[in-house]
Amino acid sequence: MSLPTDTPATVAPVPDTQLPPAPTWRRELRRAWASMVASRWALMGLIILLIAIFVAIFGPALAPFDPNRQNILLRLVEPGGAGPGGSVYWMGSDALGRDVFSRLLHGARVSLLVGFAAIAVGGTIGIIAGLLSGYFGGWVDDIIMRLGDIQLAFPFILLAIMFLVVLGPGLLNIILVLGIGQWITYARIVRAETLSLREKEYVEAARAMGDSTLSIMFRTILPNIMAPLTVIASFNVASVILSEAALSFLGLGVPPNVPTWGSMLSESREHLLSNRWWLAIFPGMAIVLVVLAFNIIGDWLRDHLDPRLREHG
């Protein structure tokens, strides 16, 4: 399991070079693509990710069955075995006779949704907190950073368990808990970057031109610190997906009628000793591949966006 308290320490420290206010996107994209193709790993990650996103969007339409349609007389059917009415369970059926393939396709949507939504929640809170903290400093900074200390000293898993036991498991609650669990990661990075950017010439210039504080924070500073945030977000999606699986294992995952890869994997554990491998292999592979893809892309983004590493190529 992986928990979002982890801060990839390899994330670029504040670059010494002064960033341009706006990169030229087209050139950047071309360069990115070239470097991605050059690194076969990154290309592989991208392909896996695109497939996963495709499945998340179109999977439910492709699924041969309702993922929650049970058929307890046709439970634990092996992959390729006969389903109801001449149909086939391509990836077998689970302990309630639900089609594993359909659940896997639907699960892609929920698992990725949990991953992205949690990052959106944590990222938004973290970015705002970090901007405030870094831009204003003083007591604002103190309060926010102390809150962060508290959060870090409180192992995320305990916080998650506590709130899920109390609030009850549910998709929204899980997203909130996983998201709130990592705001501090973003806040710290944004704060550090903001501190250094605050005194840069183009920020000074914006201030001199009478831009509002809000505009300076969100229009001038934020775009320039998106790079390290993207790197972290990529790693974090991976760890959120693993966390969701761990919470499912502890019985705090999504409700049983919501298929996620984590909950499918967790349900499979009672059947491993009795050789029902398909219950574990398919969701397990899906998790490993997607987590792998996010990690690879995170790596690549870091290498690609970190100017120091780039120089040494």
């Binding site: 399991m1 928990l3 368990i161």
Partner: peptide, 23 residues
């Protein structure tokens, strides 16, 4: 250096794994 830094940050993270693995 980065490894040492990570160990400090990782404690809470490792502890999370501990809950599951101990079970």
């Amino acid at each position: 250096l980065p490894v040492v830094t990570m160990i400090g940050l990782e404690f809470g993270f490792v502890l999370g794994g501990v809950v599951v693995v101990e079970t």
